[in-house]
């Protein structure tokens, strides 16, 4: 497990948590309250903390089925576009259905090795 925080994916910045953090940082930067370099440091910390938190704090399991529309594997990143997906939670709660889901997935090994 890396400690520097530079070896984590910035993948989660595209999720709701990362987008809102980026927005908040942008507001501060445009108000000239903080430096852009500081904002980059915050985001780097965010990358690490999200990955660690998801590993440690989350125990939920999930299965999903659907029809794969598009798949792509580039630079060790899988991208799937799945249509008519049904997500089932392990706690037996109601399934969630979606017409279209895009999955962006980075290799789990890279973070483990480093």
């Amino acid at each position: 497990m890396a400690t520097s925080g530079t070896n984590f994916y910035d993948l989660y910045r595209h999720g709701s948590l990362g987008v809102t953090l980026t927005d908040a940082l942008d507001d501060l930067i445009s108000a000239e309250r903080i430096d852009p370099q500081l904002a980059i440091k915050v985001l780097t910390q965010f990358d690490r903390i999200v990955a660690e938190s998801l590993q440690e704090k989350v125990k939920a399991r999930l299965t999903f089925k659907g029809s794969l529309d598009t798949y792509r594997f580039c630079d060790e990143v899988w991208t799937f576009l799945i249509k008519n997906v049904t997500f089932k939670m392990d706690n037996g709660s109601n399934a969630v259905h979606a017409d279209k889901v895009k999955i962006v997935s980075c290799s789990a090994k890279r973070t483990d090795e480093k």
Binding site: K65, G66, A108
Partner: peptide, 26 residues
């Protein structure tokens, strides 16, 4: 595919999971 440590946004709700398995046909 076997996925882990994911954040899922679907139908306006957000989910987090430690492990996920997906089966789909192309």
């Amino acid at each position: 595919c076997t996925l882990k440590d994911g954040v899922l946004t679907v139908n306006g709700r957000e989910y987090v999971f430690h492990k996920a398995t997906g089966e789909y046909e192309w």
